[in-house]
Simulated assay, not measured.
Amino acid sequence: MRVLAFDTSNYTTSVAFFDGTAGHNISRLLDVEQGALGLRQSDALFAHVKRLPELADRLFSDIGTDAGFEAVGVSTRPRAVEGSYMPCFLAGESQARVLGAALGVPVLPFSHQQGHIAASLWGSGHMELMDEPHLAWHLSGGTTELLRVTPEGKGSVHAEKIGGTTDISAGQLIDRTGKLLGLPFPSGKHIDALSRSAQDRQVFRVKVQETTFSLSGVQNKVEQYHAAGNSPEETAGYALRCLIGAIVRATENALLEYPGSCVVFAGGVASNTLLRSSCAALPAVFCPPQFATDNALGVAVLTWRALHG
Protein backbone atom coordinates (compact mmCIF):
# COMPACT_ATOMS: atom_id res chain seq x y z
CA MET A 1 0.00 0.00 0.00
CA ARG A 2 0.99 3.61 -0.48
CA VAL A 3 0.71 6.91 1.35
CA LEU A 4 0.34 10.48 0.12
CA ALA A 5 1.87 13.61 1.58
CA PHE A 6 1.64 17.39 1.25
CA ASP A 7 4.09 20.14 2.18
CA THR A 8 3.35 23.83 1.58
CA SER A 9 6.37 25.65 2.91
CA ASN A 10 7.09 29.35 2.60
CA TYR A 11 8.29 29.09 -1.01
CA THR A 12 7.62 25.58 -2.34
CA THR A 13 4.47 23.56 -3.00
CA SER A 14 5.04 19.78 -2.84
CA VAL A 15 3.07 16.55 -3.14
CA ALA A 16 4.51 13.05 -2.86
CA PHE A 17 3.84 9.36 -2.42
CA PHE A 18 5.83 6.60 -0.73
CA ASP A 19 5.30 2.83 -0.57
CA GLY A 20 8.01 1.78 1.85
CA THR A 21 10.59 1.33 -0.89
CA ALA A 22 10.07 3.87 -3.65
CA GLY A 23 8.87 7.43 -3.56
CA HIS A 24 7.99 10.18 -5.98
CA ASN A 25 7.90 13.91 -5.24
CA ILE A 26 6.64 16.79 -7.35
CA SER A 27 7.51 20.33 -6.26
CA ARG A 28 7.32 23.81 -7.67
CA LEU A 29 8.67 27.07 -6.30
CA LEU A 30 6.23 29.89 -5.73
CA ASP A 31 6.63 32.87 -8.04
CA VAL A 32 8.51 35.82 -6.52
CA GLU A 33 8.98 39.14 -8.31
CA GLN A 34 12.50 40.09 -9.38
CA GLY A 35 14.26 42.01 -6.61
CA ALA A 36 11.90 40.82 -3.87
CA LEU A 37 13.11 38.78 -0.89
CA GLY A 38 10.15 36.45 -0.60
CA LEU A 39 6.39 36.66 -0.19
CA ARG A 40 3.99 37.78 2.48
CA GLN A 41 2.33 34.82 4.20
CA SER A 42 -1.09 35.75 2.79
CA ASP A 43 0.34 35.74 -0.74
CA ALA A 44 2.18 32.46 -0.18
CA LEU A 45 -0.97 30.81 1.17
CA PHE A 46 -3.00 31.97 -1.85
CA ALA A 47 -0.29 30.77 -4.24
CA HIS A 48 -0.25 27.30 -2.66
CA VAL A 49 -4.03 27.01 -2.93
CA LYS A 50 -3.80 27.75 -6.66
CA ARG A 51 -0.81 25.47 -7.23
CA LEU A 52 -1.86 22.30 -5.37
CA PRO A 53 -4.45 20.97 -7.90
CA GLU A 54 -1.90 21.20 -10.72
CA LEU A 55 0.78 19.31 -8.79
CA ALA A 56 -1.70 16.69 -7.54
CA ASP A 57 -2.84 16.09 -11.12
CA ARG A 58 0.77 15.56 -12.18
CA LEU A 59 1.46 13.18 -9.29
CA PHE A 60 -1.61 11.02 -9.90
CA SER A 61 -0.87 10.99 -13.62
CA ASP A 62 2.58 9.59 -12.84
CA ILE A 63 1.65 7.03 -10.18
CA GLY A 64 -2.01 6.21 -10.86
CA THR A 65 -4.73 5.73 -8.28
CA ASP A 66 -5.71 2.07 -8.77
CA ALA A 67 -3.58 0.71 -5.91
CA GLY A 68 -5.23 2.95 -3.34
CA PHE A 69 -3.77 4.85 -0.41
CA GLU A 70 -3.77 4.00 3.27
CA ALA A 71 -3.00 7.39 4.82
CA VAL A 72 -2.28 11.03 4.06
CA GLY A 73 0.59 12.85 5.71
CA VAL A 74 1.07 16.59 5.90
CA SER A 75 3.41 19.17 7.38
CA THR A 76 1.34 21.49 9.59
CA ARG A 77 4.00 23.74 11.14
CA PRO A 78 7.68 24.65 10.73
CA ARG A 79 9.01 22.80 13.80
CA ALA A 80 7.61 20.35 16.32
CA VAL A 81 7.81 22.84 19.19
CA GLU A 82 5.18 24.84 21.02
CA GLY A 83 4.22 28.06 19.26
CA SER A 84 5.62 27.08 15.86
CA TYR A 85 3.16 28.31 13.25
CA MET A 86 3.02 29.71 9.72
CA PRO A 87 -0.23 30.29 7.77
CA CYS A 88 1.18 28.83 4.53
CA PHE A 89 0.98 25.32 5.97
CA LEU A 90 -2.81 25.63 6.15
CA ALA A 91 -2.99 25.12 2.38
CA GLY A 92 -1.50 21.63 2.52
CA GLU A 93 -3.31 20.70 5.72
CA SER A 94 -6.73 21.60 4.34
CA GLN A 95 -6.14 19.59 1.16
CA ALA A 96 -4.84 16.62 3.16
CA ARG A 97 -7.85 16.59 5.49
CA VAL A 98 -10.35 16.80 2.63
CA LEU A 99 -8.59 13.99 0.80
CA GLY A 100 -8.31 11.87 3.94
CA ALA A 101 -12.04 12.25 4.62
CA ALA A 102 -12.90 11.35 1.02
CA LEU A 103 -10.69 8.25 1.08
CA GLY A 104 -11.64 7.23 4.61
CA VAL A 105 -7.99 7.08 5.71
CA PRO A 106 -6.13 8.73 8.61
CA VAL A 107 -4.40 12.10 8.21
CA LEU A 108 -1.08 12.26 10.05
CA PRO A 109 0.52 15.62 10.91
CA PHE A 110 4.27 16.26 11.10
CA SER A 111 6.51 19.31 11.13
CA HIS A 112 8.31 20.66 8.10
CA GLN A 113 11.62 20.15 9.92
CA GLN A 114 10.90 16.48 10.68
CA GLY A 115 10.12 16.03 6.98
CA HIS A 116 13.44 17.57 5.99
CA ILE A 117 15.37 15.18 8.23
CA ALA A 118 13.48 12.13 6.94
CA ALA A 119 13.95 13.18 3.30
CA SER A 120 17.68 13.64 3.79
CA LEU A 121 18.05 10.25 5.45
CA TRP A 122 16.01 8.46 2.81
CA GLY A 123 17.72 10.29 -0.05
CA SER A 124 21.19 9.54 1.31
CA GLY A 125 20.45 5.87 1.96
CA HIS A 126 20.86 6.23 5.73
CA MET A 127 17.41 5.34 6.99
CA GLU A 128 19.03 3.42 9.85
CA LEU A 129 19.70 6.81 11.48
CA MET A 130 15.95 7.28 11.92
CA ASP A 131 16.34 4.81 14.78
CA GLU A 132 19.62 6.16 16.20
CA PRO A 133 20.63 9.42 17.88
CA HIS A 134 22.51 11.75 15.54
CA LEU A 135 23.14 15.41 14.78
CA ALA A 136 21.47 17.34 11.98
CA TRP A 137 21.72 20.76 10.40
CA HIS A 138 18.53 22.33 9.08
CA LEU A 139 19.85 25.03 6.73
CA SER A 140 17.25 26.95 4.78
CA GLY A 141 15.80 30.36 4.00
CA GLY A 142 14.13 30.56 7.37
CA THR A 143 16.14 28.23 9.59
CA THR A 144 19.74 27.64 10.57
CA GLU A 145 19.58 25.18 13.44
CA LEU A 146 21.93 22.49 14.68
CA LEU A 147 19.80 19.69 16.09
CA ARG A 148 20.22 16.69 18.33
CA VAL A 149 17.92 14.13 16.73
CA THR A 150 16.58 11.11 18.60
CA PRO A 151 13.98 8.46 17.66
CA GLU A 152 10.40 9.23 18.62
CA GLY A 153 7.39 6.96 18.90
CA LYS A 154 5.57 5.73 15.79
CA GLY A 155 8.60 5.93 13.52
CA SER A 156 9.23 9.67 13.74
CA VAL A 157 12.10 11.73 15.14
CA HIS A 158 12.46 14.33 17.88
CA ALA A 159 14.72 17.29 17.06
CA GLU A 160 16.17 19.41 19.87
CA LYS A 161 17.95 22.62 18.95
CA ILE A 162 21.52 22.72 20.33
CA GLY A 163 23.02 25.45 18.17
CA GLY A 164 22.82 27.58 15.06
CA THR A 165 22.42 31.24 14.25
CA THR A 166 21.14 33.85 16.68
CA ASP A 167 19.79 36.15 13.96
CA ILE A 168 19.49 35.82 10.19
CA SER A 169 19.53 32.36 8.63
CA ALA A 170 22.01 30.91 6.16
CA GLY A 171 19.40 31.15 3.41
CA GLN A 172 18.67 34.78 4.24
CA LEU A 173 22.36 35.64 3.98
CA ILE A 174 22.56 33.90 0.60
CA ASP A 175 19.37 35.54 -0.70
CA ARG A 176 20.47 39.00 0.47
CA THR A 177 23.79 38.44 -1.28
CA GLY A 178 21.81 37.43 -4.35
CA LYS A 179 19.76 40.62 -4.21
CA LEU A 180 22.98 42.62 -3.90
CA LEU A 181 24.18 40.94 -7.10
CA GLY A 182 20.85 41.27 -8.95
CA LEU A 183 20.12 37.53 -8.92
CA PRO A 184 16.67 35.88 -8.91
CA PHE A 185 15.04 34.76 -5.64
CA PRO A 186 15.72 32.29 -4.16
CA SER A 187 19.38 32.77 -4.98
CA GLY A 188 20.99 29.57 -3.66
CA LYS A 189 21.73 27.81 -6.94
CA HIS A 190 22.88 31.06 -8.58
CA ILE A 191 25.28 31.91 -5.73
CA ASP A 192 26.53 28.32 -5.85
CA ALA A 193 27.23 28.53 -9.60
CA LEU A 194 28.97 31.92 -9.35
CA SER A 195 31.16 30.86 -6.44
CA ARG A 196 32.74 28.04 -8.43
CA SER A 197 34.73 30.64 -10.39
CA ALA A 198 36.00 32.48 -7.29
CA GLN A 199 39.77 32.59 -6.84
CA ASP A 200 40.14 34.79 -3.74
CA ARG A 201 40.44 33.04 -0.37
CA GLN A 202 39.80 36.07 1.83
CA VAL A 203 37.31 35.35 4.61
CA PHE A 204 35.69 37.03 7.59
CA ARG A 205 36.01 34.65 10.52
CA VAL A 206 32.65 34.52 12.27
CA LYS A 207 32.83 34.28 16.06
CA VAL A 208 31.46 30.88 17.10
CA GLN A 209 30.55 30.38 20.75
CA GLU A 210 30.41 26.60 21.17
CA THR A 211 27.68 25.82 18.60
CA THR A 212 26.11 29.28 18.21
CA PHE A 213 26.99 32.20 15.95
CA SER A 214 25.62 35.41 14.40
CA LEU A 215 25.40 36.05 10.66
CA SER A 216 24.21 39.67 10.58
CA GLY A 217 27.81 40.88 10.66
CA VAL A 218 28.63 38.69 7.69
CA GLN A 219 26.01 40.49 5.62
CA ASN A 220 27.73 43.80 6.34
CA LYS A 221 31.12 42.34 5.42
CA VAL A 222 29.74 40.96 2.15
CA GLU A 223 28.33 44.37 1.23
CA GLN A 224 31.68 46.01 1.99
CA TYR A 225 33.55 43.35 0.02
CA HIS A 226 31.37 43.89 -3.05
CA ALA A 227 31.52 47.70 -2.71
CA ALA A 228 35.34 47.45 -2.83
CA GLY A 229 35.04 46.42 -6.48
CA ASN A 230 35.06 42.64 -6.21
CA SER A 231 33.18 40.74 -8.93
CA PRO A 232 29.88 38.88 -8.42
CA GLU A 233 31.81 35.60 -8.58
CA GLU A 234 34.24 36.64 -5.87
CA THR A 235 31.45 38.15 -3.74
CA ALA A 236 29.47 34.92 -3.93
CA GLY A 237 32.52 32.90 -2.90
CA TYR A 238 33.31 35.30 -0.05
CA ALA A 239 29.78 35.07 1.37
CA LEU A 240 29.81 31.29 1.25
CA ARG A 241 33.27 30.94 2.79
CA CYS A 242 32.26 33.12 5.76
CA LEU A 243 29.02 31.20 6.27
CA ILE A 244 30.46 27.73 5.84
CA GLY A 245 33.40 28.45 8.13
CA ALA A 246 30.95 29.12 10.98
CA ILE A 247 28.92 25.99 10.23
CA VAL A 248 32.00 23.76 10.13
CA ARG A 249 33.42 25.13 13.41
CA ALA A 250 30.07 24.80 15.18
CA THR A 251 29.83 21.22 13.92
CA GLU A 252 33.32 20.37 15.16
CA ASN A 253 32.43 21.78 18.59
CA ALA A 254 29.21 19.74 18.69
CA LEU A 255 31.13 16.58 17.87
CA LEU A 256 33.30 17.17 20.93
CA GLU A 257 30.14 16.92 23.04
CA TYR A 258 28.58 14.11 20.98
CA PRO A 259 31.58 12.09 19.74
CA GLY A 260 30.94 9.44 17.14
CA SER A 261 27.74 11.08 15.88
CA CYS A 262 26.84 11.32 12.23
CA VAL A 263 25.88 14.82 11.09
CA VAL A 264 22.97 14.93 8.62
CA PHE A 265 22.61 18.04 6.44
CA ALA A 266 19.06 19.01 5.45
CA GLY A 267 17.40 22.05 3.90
CA GLY A 268 18.00 23.87 0.65
CA VAL A 269 21.39 25.31 1.66
CA ALA A 270 22.60 21.73 2.21
CA SER A 271 22.72 21.32 -1.57
CA ASN A 272 25.56 23.86 -1.83
CA THR A 273 28.69 22.54 -3.54
CA LEU A 274 31.23 24.38 -1.36
CA LEU A 275 29.49 23.29 1.84
CA ARG A 276 29.67 19.66 0.78
CA SER A 277 33.36 19.81 -0.08
CA SER A 278 34.17 21.75 3.11
CA CYS A 279 32.63 19.00 5.24
CA ALA A 280 34.72 16.21 3.70
CA ALA A 281 36.65 15.65 6.93
CA LEU A 282 33.48 15.45 9.04
CA PRO A 283 31.18 12.44 9.54
CA ALA A 284 28.70 14.27 7.31
CA VAL A 285 25.68 12.79 5.56
CA PHE A 286 24.44 14.61 2.45
CA CYS A 287 21.57 13.59 0.20
CA PRO A 288 21.00 14.44 -3.49
CA PRO A 289 19.96 18.10 -3.86
CA GLN A 290 16.36 17.28 -4.78
CA PHE A 291 15.86 15.77 -1.32
CA ALA A 292 17.65 18.60 0.50
CA THR A 293 15.34 21.33 -0.77
CA ASP A 294 11.73 21.62 0.41
CA ASN A 295 9.73 18.52 -0.50
CA ALA A 296 6.82 16.37 0.65
CA LEU A 297 8.70 13.08 0.31
CA GLY A 298 10.10 13.24 3.85
CA VAL A 299 6.57 13.67 5.20
CA ALA A 300 5.48 10.66 3.11
CA VAL A 301 8.32 8.60 4.59
CA LEU A 302 7.27 9.57 8.11
CA THR A 303 3.65 8.75 7.33
CA TRP A 304 4.53 5.28 6.07
CA ARG A 305 6.75 4.61 9.09
CA ALA A 306 3.98 5.67 11.46
CA LEU A 307 1.83 2.91 10.01
CA HIS A 308 4.42 0.20 9.49
CA GLY A 309 7.22 0.98 11.96
Rank of each mutant, 00 (worst) to 15 (best):
F69S: 05
F69E: 06
F69Y: 14
A71M: 05
A71L: 04
G73Y: 13
G73A: 13
G73P: 15
V74D: 04
T76W: 01
T76F: 01
T76K: 05
R77S: 05
P78N: 09
R79P: 03
R79H: 13
R79W: 06
V81I: 15
V81P: 02
E82S: 09
E82C: 07
Y85G: 12
M86L: 14
L90W: 03
L90T: 09
L90N: 12
L90K: 13
E93D: 11
E93P: 00
Q95M: 14
Q95T: 11
Q95E: 07
R97H: 03
R97D: 07
R97M: 10
V98P: 00
G100A: 15
A101R: 09
A101P: 00
A102N: 14
L103N: 09
G104P: 10
G104D: 02
G104Y: 05
V105E: 12
P106D: 09
P109M: 01
P109L: 01
S111W: 06
S111P: 11
H112N: 02
Q113N: 09
H116A: 12
I117R: 10
L121T: 00
L121Y: 00
W122K: 00
G123N: 04
G123S: 06
S124W: 11
E128K: 13
L129A: 12
M130C: 04
E132R: 11
E132I: 03
E132V: 02
P133Y: 03
H134R: 06
L135S: 07
A136Y: 08
L139Q: 06
S140N: 04
G141M: 07
G141F: 08
T144M: 01
T144L: 02
T144S: 04
L146H: 13
T150P: 14
T150G: 09
T150V: 15
E152T: 02
E152G: 14
G153S: 12
G155T: 03
S156H: 01
V157E: 03
V157Q: 12
H158K: 15
A159M: 14
A159E: 08
K161W: 00
K161I: 13
I162P: 14
G163K: 07
G164D: 14
I168M: 05
A170G: 11
A170Q: 05
L173I: 04
I174D: 00
R176T: 01
R176V: 03
G178L: 00
K179M: 10
K179C: 05
L181N: 12
G182V: 13
G182L: 12
L183C: 02
P184C: 03
P184V: 03
P186T: 04
P186W: 05
K189H: 13
I191T: 03
D192L: 04
L194F: 01
L194H: 01
S195M: 10
R196Q: 14
R196D: 01
